[in-house]
Amino acid sequence: MIPFAGWEMPVQYKGLVEEHRAVRSAAGLFDLSHMGEIFITGPGAAAALDYALITAPGKLAVGRAHYSMICDVSGGILDDLIVYRLGDSRYMVVPNASNAAEVSAALSERLAGFDAELDDATMRTSLVAIQGPRAVEILQPFVDVDLSTIRYYSGTEMRACGVPAVLARTGYTGEDGFELFVSWDDALRVWDTLLEGGADRGLIPAGLGARDTLRLEAGMPLYGQELSRETTPFEAGLGRLVSFAKPGDFVGRDALEKAKDHPRKALVGLKLSGPRVARIGYHVYLPAAAEPCGTVTSGTASPTLGFGIAMGYVPADRNAVGGELEVSIRDQRASAQVVPMPFYKRSN
């Protein structure tokens, strides 16, 4: 167990790589109760979120979800989050644990003038995620709905494992899977029910360590590493999220319109040659250059691919796939090639 954003979190249960492989080949169960859950409700909820976030939640169909960001007026990223439209005038926003309080405060401020109310349910809501190719068959007996009819990136209020839940087909692993938002009091029941129900199908508990290597293989950014206030969505390779087409103003619009064509840096995926592992904070160089041109933001030895992978920021004109770079690992240069992300994509 380690402290993480004020929570005590399991880094690993049986072992990081075993848990990682279980998620890729069968299924893993994650306790993500640290994540934030903020409900926005009211006739003005859609318009309020259109103003508060860079995407257009107002255009989401009921029952659907999308990946979004909340930016500051300068276009810097305050957090990345998932927005679920649970009803015509009811949304759930899921920020990172480390930013939940800040996001809640920023949303409250941005809701002023809209007919919408904010309810920060973080401290009474748990999140249990089941992720992996066998997630559907393991979860199916414990819900009334036919899971094959639930689309990726959707979220609906229903009963699951005998308790009220928001059941969402989302995740942070690059695999198919579900996330169950339930009350704190019901979380243990959900955890035990799924773990027991999935044991003979290879389901095992998975910790923060596997969550990090899985999301990295899937090319998903992590706030505090790839994303920060000093980074715009364009620099993070997520400019497609910014909805300039939506009517009305939104926080950060002016700055993002200016930043769109002037990225100061670019996030790239790197494939390392050799067995040494590039890690957060290591410097990136143009071949044989004396001075660094960028920084590694995440890196690991990929359990699925068998070689070293990393994400990092480089000068904006050095992001072309195939480009050769170097990473300094303990005073020795390792060559690294810019490769497309995700590093890993599931086959189905």
Binding site: L16, T213, R279, T300, A301, P303
Partner: peptide, 8 residues
């Protein structure tokens, strides 16, 4: 050094 998946 020993490199593991998570740490060095």
């Amino acid at each position: 050094v020993i490199e593991a998946v998570k740490s060095v």
